[in-house]
Structure formats: structure tokens, C-alpha cells
Design a protein around this nucleic acid. Sequence first.
DNA 1: GTTTTGACGTAGC
DNA 2: CGCTACGCCAAAA
Length: 111
Amino acid sequence: MTKSNDFFDQVFQVVRLIPKGRVTSYGVIAKYLGGSARVVGYAMNASHTSKPKVHAQRVLNRNGQLTGKHHFETPFLMQELLEQDGVKVKDDQVINFEKIFWDPFIELKID
DNA sequence: GTTTTGACGTAGC
DNA sequence: CGCTACGCCAAAA
């Protein structure tokens, strides 16, 4: 039992809360959980071991780019999954990224 | 145990 | 406007 497991789990939970057709970024989640963006990406790497499967494709970098596609089974899978969610992807970048951006500080805002 | 690296982000030059 | 540097923290070597 380690603290890192707890942080990973928190990342997983937040990612799972992302609605269909929405995306978010590592940095925002990191900031929301009080960690670093790198660790969030690291958590995503471990996400495939988590059940149910974490929608890692909905988590992108600050630029809205599919930076982590290379970590999927196939580099195309990440884009396809996003498109299946109704998210348009062009040149490894999400279209209307700001429009579909899902911010935990707003959506999960604690009054 | 130390060193390197990594699905990031911001600041500086 | 592109590259370097640094901070962040954890996993792998």
C-alpha cells in the first residue's frame, strides 16, 4: 500500500468521470489532484491495468495533441476512440479542443 | 542505493 | 517563434 497507488487511483477516477465527447489535459488533472503533470501521464501508462479500462484517450496534453497515442495498442486506436466519442482529430490534434475541454475545477467544483 | 527517463507545463532566452 | 532549462514526482534501469 503506497501513496502513489492512491494518486493513480484518483487520476483514474477523474478520467473515468470525463463525459463522452469531452477531453481534458494532464496538467489540469495534476493541478486538481495536487500532483505533477508527469505523474498523471505516468498514471495513464498504468491505466491499462485498471478496471474498468480508463479512457486515456480523453486525456491530452495542454496543446490538445494526442501525445500518448504511441502508448496505445496502435497509434491509430487513440484517434479512433476519440472520433467514436464524437471528437474530431486532425494531425494528432483535437478539433475544438477548447470547446470540448473538460475541466475538473469547473465540472467537479467543490462548493 | 544512484541515475536516467518520461503519455507535461511554464519560464526564459 | 523555436529551443533550452527547470520543476514536478514516480518507475525502471
